[in-house]
Design a protein around this nucleic acid. Structure first.
Lengths: 258, 258
DNA sequence: ATAAAAGCTATTATATGAATAATATGAAGA
DNA sequence: TCTTCATATTATTCATATAATAGCTTTTAT
């Protein structure tokens, strides 16, 4: 028996996405997002047998070529496996590559729970203070100048919830890059996801982000002054504040929904 | 002008791989590994224009279908971008997802430098002690029993360089899992890569791994005893020792090659 | 002479049909 | 009861055709 209603729902959602023309995406990217979201957000559970290639591509109104490429990409991120005769299946969560930028985005693009926030900040707390300390030791004068410039930019838009997001993101990612460690640099997607989520949650708050500027200044100051432990502590404090903000926003959200 | 010699070299290597039948791989996986390695190990540099789809698939002796799927997977890992008319290009390293299991494996599968080791252990040092602390707080009795069992298994094969690798890997990955944090769990691939590299480097050393057992016992003991700070310190010590071992092995290797 | 616009062309993107290979399942036999 | 074997199902691969797009060239208008 085939899950016809689910397929129909997926096809419909695709039609909507396609019509809205959200991304500059081609068919491939669109279908990839659809299926990726379906899996990561739990609509398709681990172990679930997926429709066979023909039916599935038909349901999305795309060719097998496109679906197949999507399948392979998802398999490359650990979400799916495809074996002859058995068909395609969603792999257990322990095989998913949660640090993949796409998977992160799919997971945190909607309905985040308190547990999701906890996971995110647990990891950030392990990474960013350490990265700050390394940055303080290794950053080139040029990089430090750039960081200061971004800080100034943040000051300029600290009261504008919309425009603050970008320089804030650049600020945090720059610190990761300044470690000179490419593995750490690849965690930029993690920070991006966290900040996007945070800004999405707090966009009802019209009070801007000025309250976080002092701590950002501390971070930049410590790095400029080559103070590794200072940078570590400043980033810890910044993360404490950020997590507190997010938790408040979630609490407010759930209070509204009641 | 097309890089004919490079293509020929790639095709030849594929033939070798195919003949040796290394992985359980299909064509797709084989070509994926070939091209992934070529890129990550620097044979194809960022910004390099890649051959067009027809020539390239011909060079590997596979259909365009297979090559296209490979391209899409690599694009999903950030290594490549493909635009119509412009063709395919290797993306700058800053876009690569170094934490992807495949990319990690490609990068550390050969000729590791001291810098590579530093990067790996910098990140492990940030993650594993923290994970150990969380594990000490959160692990279920069942999980702790499993960890102890793995420890016993390690004891049993501590003098066998070959057989020690697997339980050691399980030991470290289990700690990540016991945090209950899926983002941290996805770093299992990082630890796997590090350990495989470490074992590969030290396989001339016939003296086994018994010297690391006391520290492993400390780790397990701290977690069993719900001692978070103890677990953190024990893991730090363990990492110090492991990094020291690797550095010694690299030094020995380069001394031999001179 | 310069700049904008139209058209050409190479290249990827998408689609489709057909052939091949692998394997889980069940039937047949020891 | 176990093993062997055939078969149907499914993914995998291949070959080919059409569409879309972006860079380049030519044209054209000012």
């Amino acid at each position: 028996m085939k899950p016809r209603s689910t397929l129909a729902a997926q096809a419909h959602r695709l039609a909507v996405t396609r019509a809205s023309g959200s991304a500059s995406a081609g068919l491939h990217a669109m279908v990839l997002n659809q299926i990726g979201l379906s899996i990561v957000q739990g609509e398709l559970a681990p172990g679930d047998p997926l429709p066979n290639a023909d039916d599935w591509s038909a349901a999305y109104g795309v060719s097998r070529t496109v679906l197949r490429e999507v399948i392979k990409v998802l398999a490359g991120k650990g979400l799916i496996e495809s074996r002859t005769k058995t068909g395609m299946r969603v792999r257990p969560r322990s095989n998913w590559n949660f640090l993949d930028p796409d998977v992160l985005a799919w997971r945190y693009s909607a309905r985040v729970s308190e547990a999701d926030v906890r996971e995110l900040f647990e990891l950030r707390r392990a990474i960013e203070p350490m990265a700050g300390a390394l940055a303080a030791e290794r950053a080139t004068p040029d990089q430090i100048a750039q960081l200061e410039a971004v800080l100034v930019e943040m000051e300029g838009v600290a009261d504008d919830g919309e425009r603050f997001a970008e320089p804030d993101l650049v600020f945090h990612q720059m610190i990761l890059r300044m470690t000179g460690n490419e593995l750490i640099g690849s965690l930029a997607a993690l920070i991006e996801t966290a900040l996007l989520m945070s800004f999405r949650l707090s966009n009802d708050n019209p009070h801007g982000h000025r309250h976080s500027m002092p701590l950002h200044r501390d971070v930049a100051g410590s790095i400029s002054g080559r103070d590794a432990t200072g940078a570590r502590q400043a980033l810890l404090a910044l993360l404490d504040q950020a997590e507190e903000d997010v938790r408040r926003a979630i609490a407010a959200r759930s209070r509204i929904q009641e």
